[in-house]
Design a protein around this nucleic acid. Structure first.
Lengths: 198, 198
DNA sequence: TCGGTTTTATGATTTTAATCATAAAACAAG
DNA sequence: CTTGTTTTATGATTAAAATCATAAAACCGA
């Protein structure tokens, strides 16, 4: 996260996106730095049969889409507003100027990329070698630490749909539903009127 | 990659590792910045049944294991020398000092992390939604761009074993062998006395 | 060059999650 | 409130890759 006041000095623009509106598409070249001001954004891929894989979900104060910006490569995925969202956009050249003139921000960017790389490393290993129950639990436990899950009397409320969990773990909805039921039986989590708690 | 001369100014140490020797293990806290001087290093995970997932393979001049170093988190995977290798080690505090005093290096680190994040994004989507042939081809094409595959009269020599391809794509050896055979039939690649070319 | 190990190879069988089909419950919009 | 859509749910069937078994070829070290 870069302080909005600092971004303003470099000419940031605020833009609103409706629910389900595309922010940028796979295959195009990046032109901006993006940071969520309010709402929720997902980055995802669709394969030829239309099956979705969610790369990540981003909330207030989080930035997204930087890697291709630094590499001058095409976006490997789409960014879509999950809810009505306000996004800060900073043109690439201004962003680079900001970085040059504020070396401490570089460290923040590094930490942020490191965090995302860490998540991807963990989930990649899960997805390719672990069974559904393990994958789902790992995603949930990661989410408690890094997505904005709220704690209440029943524990942490996992505010993802079964479909989203599937798209984040490479599983089908039906498999996620059955897996979550099993995890409840084993006492690993609770289902209270269809909502998942841990 | 950070120039070895610069690393030396900050007290880098050269260490040799035998083939199959462990450089660091999953679960421990990072203490050093690592950069390959010669040889080959792989980072990988093992699940409870001993099945391996290779996070990445690193060659001459490449660094590895930075994310947990920046986050003060445990390593999510093991680093093992694939061949006899010489590795440069810089203690964390010295490395941080180097970064502070050389802002341009931060940009290099950012670009490097961005590159690795890009690879992980692409492969994560592949592994969770695509079929074996697609996964293997994507890995190979990525490898041509970023691993050190050499080109000769037959095309690029993919110097990975079938097992390694499997451990990088989440497939079993037998599946990789059959998949590669099919890809050859379709003319997507060549097999010349067991070696794969593209 | 001999013997052990790794890598590639192939066929048969099994397992597991995907797929298909269908529906109830919950939610959202008008 | 009604209606359309999304989400959760469950059972039956299928398909695809994993697993199991076995072996030849290649490579490596003493």
């Amino acid at each position: 996260m870069i302080a909005p006041e600092l971004l303003e000095k470099y000419g940031v623009v605020k833009k609103s996106f409706d629910k389900n509106e595309i922010i940028f598409e796979e295959g195009i070249f990046p032109a901006n730095y993006y940071q969520v001001l309010s709402g929720e954004v997902k980055m995802s891929n669709y394969n030829d049969e239309g099956r979705e894989f969610i790369q990540g979900i981003f909330y207030k104060e989080q930035s997204f889409g930087e890697p291709p910006l630094f590499l001058n490569q095409k976006y490997p995925a789409n960014a879509i507003a999950v809810d009505n969202s306000e996004i800060l956009l900073l043109p690439k050249s201004n962003f680079m100027k900001l970085l040059e003139e504020n070396p401490k921000i570089s460290i923040k960017i590094i930490e942020n990329l490191a965090q995302r790389l860490y998540y991807k490393s963990v989930m990649a290993a899960e997805i390719s070698t672990q069974e559904p129950e393990h994958r789902v639990l790992k995603l949930i436990d990661h989410g408690i630490a890094y997505f904005n899950f709220k704690k209440d009397a029943n524990g942490y409320l996992i505010n993802f749909t079964r479909q989203q969990i599937g798209d984040l773990t490479g599983l089908r909805v039906e498999t996620v539903i059955r897996t979550i039921k099993n995890l409840e039986k084993k006492g690993e989590l609770k289902i209270i009127n269809r909502k998942v708690y841990r």
